Amino acid sequence: MSGAVESGDYVWPTCLACGRDLWTNELDRLACRPCEERTAARIAELPALFRQLDTTAALMKGASRSGSPTSGSRTPPIPPRLDVLNLVSPGGVAARLGAIEDAWRATLGWTIAPWRGSPAQAVPRLAEFLANNLLWACSSYEAVGQNIDDLRRLHGECAALVNDERRPGRVQIGNCPMQVGDELCWTPLTATAASHRVRCGGCGTRWETLGEWRELRAAQEAVLAEAAGVAA
């Protein structure tokens, strides 16, 4: 069943993918139309993204442009972009799309698809199946919210590598000033420009808002000032 928000005695259905209230003309669905449309666009783009990644991977196998080996060894060097090869390998894009297709087929009572060939052969066929049955999933499949999220993540991973997007690095922002029992936590903290959330890996304390960041800085300065006073 879809998610729901209570309004008096009535429970209004919500989209299983994004959580917003369904429109009145969507009440026979589990996922809203905008989520379906965005997912359809991602599915349509995945085969082309895969082809670009597969070409990139082929250029990383250690052979020179002339085709002669780069060394006397038959074993090629470790590829520098394992993240790319992980997506184009049999356990990558093809396997993740295939898991969704198999689950949909099982729910529909259809035969699980036979061997689909290499990942390059399988990805277009898998994308075609998912595109053809997406409306059914958004209307009737209980796990469609998770599938939509999985497809969003997969598309994001592929697009980021194709576009050579680099993840922002992490920077040190001091130590955790929280008291844990009789001791100071003082676990090193890091932050990234991609997120305003900071979590201490030692005690689990979180700082997520500008006000909490200011409190964190003030607490760190207080600990350092106290330590300096003791040392003096």
Rank of each mutant, 00 (worst) to 15 (best):
D83G: 11
D83Y: 03
D83A: 11
V84N: 12
V84S: 12
V88H: 02
S89L: 04
P90C: 09
G91F: 01
G91K: 02
G92D: 07
V93W: 02
V93M: 07
A94T: 09
A94R: 13
L97H: 06
A99D: 12
A99V: 02
A99F: 07
A103S: 15
A106V: 12
L108D: 09
G109L: 09
W110K: 10
T111C: 01
I112R: 14
A113V: 08
A113Y: 00
A113W: 02
P114D: 03
P114E: 01
R116P: 02
R116L: 15
G117M: 08
G117E: 06
S118N: 03
S118W: 03
P119M: 03
A120F: 05
Q121D: 06
A122Y: 11
A122E: 12
V123R: 13
V123P: 11
P124V: 10
P124R: 10
P124E: 07
L126R: 09
A127Q: 04
E128I: 00
F129I: 03
L130E: 13
A131F: 05
N133M: 07
L134V: 04
S139E: 15
A143D: 07
V144S: 05
V144F: 02
G145R: 08
I148R: 05
L151E: 04
R152N: 09
R152M: 06
R153H: 13
L154K: 05
G156T: 08
G156I: 03
E157S: 10
A160L: 04
A160F: 06
V162F: 07
N163F: 07
N163I: 00
N163S: 15
E165L: 09
P168S: 09
G169F: 01
G169R: 15
R170N: 05
V171E: 12
V171L: 00
Q172V: 02
Q172Y: 12
I173C: 00
G174F: 11
N175E: 14
P177L: 10
M178H: 07
V180Q: 14
G181E: 07
G181H: 08
D182R: 12
L184D: 06
W186I: 05
W186K: 14
W186E: 11
T187V: 10
T187C: 12
P188D: 11
L189F: 10
L189A: 08
L189N: 09
L189I: 05
L189H: 02
T190E: 15
T190Y: 11
T192S: 15
T192C: 13
A193C: 07
